[in-house]
Nucleic acid binder design. Structure first.
Lengths: 220, 220
DNA sequence: ACAATCTTCATACAATCTTCATAATTCTTT
DNA sequence: AAAGAATTATGAAGATTGTATGAAGATTGT
């Protein structure tokens, strides 16, 4: 299991690192936003422990960045802010757990183990965009309580778009999504056709926006 | 017995999960309102353990939602609020029991067993889907009082599908059900054939739905 | 050995994916 | 502002994949 600690307080980072190493995890430490991105670029992490305060950008911004990059590691946020609003913000932003400083090492360890045990279980299972509900578990789509039949390819495209509502996906990215091997280079207009059909099933609500000469994105 | 734990504190959820798993229950965990709805959408629960505080909406709102959806699972509410008014509110809202944090695991377990005993008695032994009755004890199937002869394999498949009316079973799952060892890897079309025969005996009422490229499920 | 059940196989059918020709839109140049 | 170029949208036809079905052969239990 690979764990990345993102924490600018070196002393604290060191303590956590030792603690987790003793448990037999592979641990890396990053001390800034930019540093963290570099680590993520080189390794796949199962868990990222993320401090709210970083020298260059906030831990919350890193969280958003992670999610828009489709990094699906578990994220445990650390913060000195005890308010409920921070907890809520973190969890809504895609964090999987939240822990206030100061905390005991026993509790940290318990939460780390808990998160790792739950890796790739059911999370973020429903996405809502306007009146459209996407159920990831069952791969179903409902509009105002009515179940709409999406083909596998259509569903995959809609789900990935909807999971990252701010990101514009290139047609090439979308293509390599439904063709799990590397997509052929000859660019047909499959994606356009699928998008057309998805839009039709979504009753032409303006949910998928065309970004000319790039691809598509969800509007919210 | 299927139990759903709705609790945003992962650590606590984990503890309860382990406790109940040890007792032999099937346990799912949801960490938010929306997450819980997703779980409910794909499984029938006998008991839902519901924390008052959730990141997106309150557990009380979920309780109301459950009742308006006519979900008839038992509901045990957990809360840090010790006041009588909360207890009353929960019970009036349709909860079947209420437990204050902190509580001992022994007490939790006792209440869970007590709640399940209520439903346990004569439930799940007869399943009705439209005009089809499945008698688990005798492994008989009747349609409008007429006994229909099902072969063992056919009966097993129908029973497991009917016992989880919301779940879509993959053909592989179904296969490993009638071949109690590990199913052979070569996927024949045995399941398709059995499903065809079951459908015929059910007089082609639209009870078993095909979920393309996945498997089958019961429609109600 | 017999009957019931299970499994395989060949084929028919249906849903989905992909391509293609052409229309509509947007951007660029004049 | 109009013409031309590039990009996207669309309907329909063909190709592909997944499912349904009937019948024959294999297996099981009595």
């Amino acid at each position: 299991m690979n764990i990345l600690i993102v924490e600018d307080d070196l002393l604290n980072a060191d303590l956590i690192e030792k603690l987790l190493c003793k448990e037999g995890f592979e641990v890396d430490v990053a001390t800034s936003f930019i540093d963290a991105l570099a680590c993520i670029d080189q390794r796949v992490y199962d868990l990222i422990i993320l401090d709210w305060n970083l020298p260059d950008k906030s831990g919350y911004e890193l969280l958003e960045e992670l999610r828009s990059l489709l990094i699906d590691a578990q994220v445990l946020m650390l913060s000195a802010n005890d308010g409920v609003e921070y907890r809520v913000k973190a969890l809504n932003g895609g964090a999987d757990d939240y822990l206030c400083k100061p905390y005991s090492h026993v509790e940290l360890l318990a939460r780390v183990n808990s998160l790792l045990r739950r890796t790739n279980s059911n999370k973020n299972t429903i996405i809502q965009i306007a009146s459209v509900f996407i159920y990831k578990n069952t791969k179903e789509v409902k509009i105002e309580d009515e179940l709409i039949n999406f083909t596998p390819a259509e569903y995959e495209l809609l789900e990935v778009l909807a999971s990252n509502p701010k990101k514009t996906f290139t047609k090439f990215e979308l293509l390599s999504l439904i063709h799990n091997e590397y997509a052929s280079f000859s660019m047909s207009n499959i994606i356009e056709v699928h998008i057309k059909n998805i839009r039709k099933k979504l009753q032409d609500k303006e949910i998928i926006k065309t970004v000319r000469s790039i691809g598509y994105k969800i509007v919210s």
